[in-house]
């Protein structure tokens, strides 16, 4: 409970710093307008006034905080749309991508780590460990390029990007929905996004499981004559998963940031693309909204990881 209260000043401080950084942008968020020769200084002044950019910075900050509390995060400086709408509109497609990647990463990472842990220091173990190193060292965008190249060379027609170029809000209700089409579009970006985390989770799972295997209760279970399967899954996996839950919770917000690269390569109409577009247009309101939401995710999942950890592992107690 205390931790929750502590998160509030932290988020306030974060918002203050982000706001200061972003509002010191030289164009003041109107860069593209300033470069347009057809827009007169009077227009700029009017625009500034309409967007409230002519007020002193603390006033702007307080106004913005109020907007955040009302749930609209201010208005985009490039098309005056409420930032919150622009972000929410793209959430389904980003969540689809993130969720799939997360699922793939957990399933493959955990099974690979488990597989390596029950046969430590064998060829299989070394193979998986080395693969994990590759996964951690791989520049993700290059992996995407190479997959693209490999598929093109072998003539496999896996489409790149979203087939439905409509706003993602319409996807779920669209009558052109087809599962196979969705999967074929999803598989590449999700794999690329999951790649780093597969490596991370498998390494973590391996060491966590190895630690559990050496414990007394595992020895006891083996001495009782329980079957290998029961020992491994009921006694071993359950305990080895506890630290993994924390790690997966802590790395989830990173997927949100990692989506920037993946989405811009695969033309996926999600938050990452929104961010890159806003960056090109110097749309400070959207950039601020994205950073703030991402920071909130980090803070929330940190808190979440602590709470879940204490709940799963009775040995851990917070004052």
């Amino acid at each position: 409970m205390r931790r929750t209260f502590q998160a509030v000043p932290l988020l306030l401080l974060i918002s203050m710093i982000l706001f200061l950084i972003i509002h010191n942008a030289p164009g003041g968020g109107l860069g593209p307008y300033l470069q347009n020769p057809h827009i007169t200084p009077a227009d700029i002044a009017r625009l500034k006034h309409n967007l409230g950019l002519d007020k002193p910075l603390p006033v702007q900050y307080v106004t913005w905080l109020g907007q955040v509390l009302h749930g609209d995060f201010g208005y985009s400086t490039s098309n005056s749309e409420p930032v919150f709408n622009a972000i929410v509109e793209r959430l389904p497609s980003t969540f689809l991508l993130m969720g799939t990647a997360y699922f793939i990463a957990i399933v493959i990472g955990v099974s690979a780590g488990l597989f390596a842990a029950v046969r430590p220091y064998t060829t299989w173990d070394y193979l998986i460990t080395t693969f994990a190193f590759f996964g951690q060292s791989m520049p993700v965008f290059w992996l995407a390029l190479m997959l693209q190249l490999a598929l093109a060379v072998h003539g496999i027609p896996l489409p790149f990007g979203y087939l439905l170029q409509l706003p993602s809000a319409e996807i779920s209700s669209s009558d052109t929905f087809s599962l196979s089409d969705r999967i074929s579009h999803l598989i590449l970006p999700a794999t690329v996004l999951a790649f780093l985390n597969i490596a991370l989770y498998s390494r973590f799972m391996r060491s966590s499981m190895l630690e559990v295997i050496r414990t007394d209760y595992m020895r006891t279970a083996a001495a009782k004559g329980l079957s290998f399967r029961t020992i491994l899954f009921k006694h071993g996996l359950k305990n080895a998963m506890i630290p993994l839950v924390t790690v997966t919770a802590l790395t989830l917000p990173a997927l949100f940031g990692g989506a920037i690269v993946t989405e811009s390569i695969f033309a996926w109409p999600g938050e990452g693309r929104l961010f890159i577009t806003a960056l090109g247009q110097e749309d400070i309101a959207i950039l601020l909204g994205f950073l703030m939401i991402n920071a909130c995710l980090v803070v929330f999942f940190n808190l979440f990881a602590d709470v879940v950890y204490a709940w799963l592992d009775p040995r851990v107690k917070y004052e």
């Binding site: 932290l10 974060i14 710093i17 982000l18 950084i21 972003i22 917000p253 990173a254 949100f256 940031g257 990692g258 920037i260 690269v261 961010f275 960056l279 950039l287 994205f290 950073l291 991402n294 920071a295 980090v298 803070v299 940190n302």
Partner: peptide, 11 residues
């Protein structure tokens, strides 16, 4: 540590 690095760098 709470502000994600890559987006902040990009901004």
């Amino acid at each position: 540590l709470s502000i994600p690095l890559l987006p902040l760098l990009l901004v």
